[in-house]
Amino acid sequence: MLYEVKDKLKSDQVVKVAPFRKEVRKTTAHKHNKYLEIVLLTKGEGTHTIDMRSYEIHPPQIFFIRKDQLHHWDITTEPEGVVLIIKNDFVRQVLDKELIRLVEQLSSMTELKLREIEFISDIFRLLLEEMNGEHPSQIVWEGLLKSVLYKIIQQGDRLSWSKLGTIYEAYLNLLYDSRELVNNVAFYAEKLTTTPQNLNRICRQQKNKSASEILAEAILSEAKRKLVYTDLPVNAIGDSLGFKDASHFTRYFKKHIGYTPSVYRSISC
């Protein structure tokens, strides 16, 4: 292997936020270990190369580096900014599906130039203070994280979104904005006026996951929410998610989560 694989998270961390290290100017090409890295730069000049494509650094600017991407920095002036790291396991643990959708949506991006930075910088500062405080509150930092991700999307230059990214984003919107999920990729491909094969290719390109894997994550997230926040019987939850019977839902849930729905509900409530 000709490149380094870096891991900036402790084993029990799923999210980390820290100031961009001012001494980081030039790095060798490396990848990350199972996490998305979002880098906000407010100062600095030079280039950032991601998958052999070089981007000029012109703050305010955000870079998104997925675990499968090779990248390196060549910064010529003192940088300032914030680094946000989100582990892949995060989307399987959080119950706020809007937050999941925002993370998934931004993970399809590579670079965004921002029109306005003050409000985003303020939220990042509050997030940094909360997560690195003596007694961080998950409710608080999840709310701040959701706010900053939403503002990034809102403030970003929409011309930066590729067509493939737009289709991927539309797929996520169908999954996370829907009141009822259908466990069938072809159903969503038809709604997007594409084929299951093309949707699968787009998901692989944008997220390095199949369309069915992304659908499974959405179904499991919705199942966990209903198990924790409703009193619906397990068979009714399985039925609402399109499973043919309770035993099929129980096997599916245990295969992916490691617990049966009933056990998951008992340890989560």
Results as ranks from 00 to 15, higher is better:
Thr110Pro: 00
Gln61Met: 15
Val5Asp: 02
Ile57Arg: 01
Gly46Thr: 07
Asn200Gly: 03
Gln205Val: 14
Gly238Ala: 09
Thr77Pro: 07
Leu172Phe: 08
Lys10Gln: 10
Lys191Met: 13
Ile153Gln: 08
Lys209Tyr: 13
Ile117Asp: 02
Tyr150Pro: 02
Asp51Pro: 09
Ser162Pro: 03
Leu164Tyr: 10
Leu145Gln: 00
Ile257Cys: 06
Asp51Trp: 06
Ile237His: 09
Thr260His: 07
Lys254Gly: 06
Val148His: 09
Thr195Met: 10
Glu129Val: 12
Glu98Trp: 09
Asn235Trp: 12
His135Val: 15
Ala18Gly: 06
Ile50Gln: 09
Glu37Gly: 12
Phe249Thr: 04
Glu78Lys: 13
Glu169Thr: 12
Asn183Trp: 04
Met131Asp: 02
Ser137Ala: 08
Glu118Thr: 06
Val91Gly: 03
Arg115Gln: 14
Leu199Asn: 06
Val263Cys: 03
Ser178Thr: 04
Asp245Glu: 13
Phe63Arg: 03
Ser212Trp: 06
Phe119His: 14
Trp141Leu: 02
Thr166Leu: 14
Thr260Lys: 06
Tyr55Phe: 15
Ile152Tyr: 03
Met1Leu: 06
Ala29Trp: 08
Val263Arg: 14
Val39Lys: 04
Gly238Asn: 12
Asn183Ser: 03
Val228Asp: 11
Ala18Pro: 00
Ala246Asp: 08
Asn183Val: 00
Tyr171Cys: 04
Asp157Tyr: 06
Glu169Ser: 11
Ile237Cys: 13
Ala18Glu: 15
Leu9Asp: 04
Phe90Gly: 08
Arg179Leu: 13
Glu129Pro: 01
Asn132Gln: 03
Val148Asn: 09
Gln105His: 11
Asp68Ser: 15
Ser210Trp: 04
Val103Pro: 06
Tyr264Trp: 15
Tyr229Gln: 03
